[in-house]
Amino acid sequence: MEKPIIETFGLGKKYRISSSDVKNGTAEKSNSWIKSAFPFYGKEDSWALRNIDLRIEKGDVVAIMGNNGSGKSTLFKLLSEVTDPSEGRFVLRGTISSMLEVGVGFHLELTGKENIFLNGTLLGMKKAEINKHFDEIVAFSGVEHYLNVPIKKYSSGMYVRLAFAVASFLRTDILLVDEVLSVGDKSFKEKSIARMKEMASEGTTIMIVSHDTSVLTDLCNRAVNFQNGRMMGEGQVKDFLL
């Protein structure tokens, strides 16, 4: 049997947070200005994620569920190597790309076309790849007529559509998608979900964070539930619906 494409062993991430941030709204507040002026004063460890043992099989489309602050995004940051684990380790058996937020590196002063190339390169696409998919990206985003306009003049809808379009043409074994399916209007949303399904059928392993449970039920064949930085269970999306 093939080994899992992602495996984590006791993965954990800790942040140092000043204690006044944690106990917000209590009597502590009276001397908070001292703490802000002297940053060494009163720091506490806070575990954003701890003891995560996760196995993702190749071709899975996994929903990562949980409330805000349950560590979903931290998990993605660890897996995509944006930040380092504080304990534990993990293994990746394929290339990984992340859509943690759409429009990484988008610059408002640059035109749509310039941004497609900048963003694509930053996401790890080769120039030839971008050239090859350029027309598809543009068609998908629907901003054909504004390609040579600085994106600061774009509407917010056009902006996210363009950003999503670039990211959705990534060629990668594992794709991390964080809350970016809810961008754009209804028809664009349907288009992006269709695109996700297409990628999944091509064999891309996908992990998705979304608060839109209907999307998750539609797309995913597995689900993992997180609470307060701990893994609380695995199963189907419907098992964790409230």
Partner: peptide, 10 residues
């Protein structure tokens, strides 16, 4: 292709 990332990596 296997890529290990460990918390002890420097």
């Amino acid at each position: 292709m296997e890529k290990w990332i460990n918390h002890t990596d420097t």
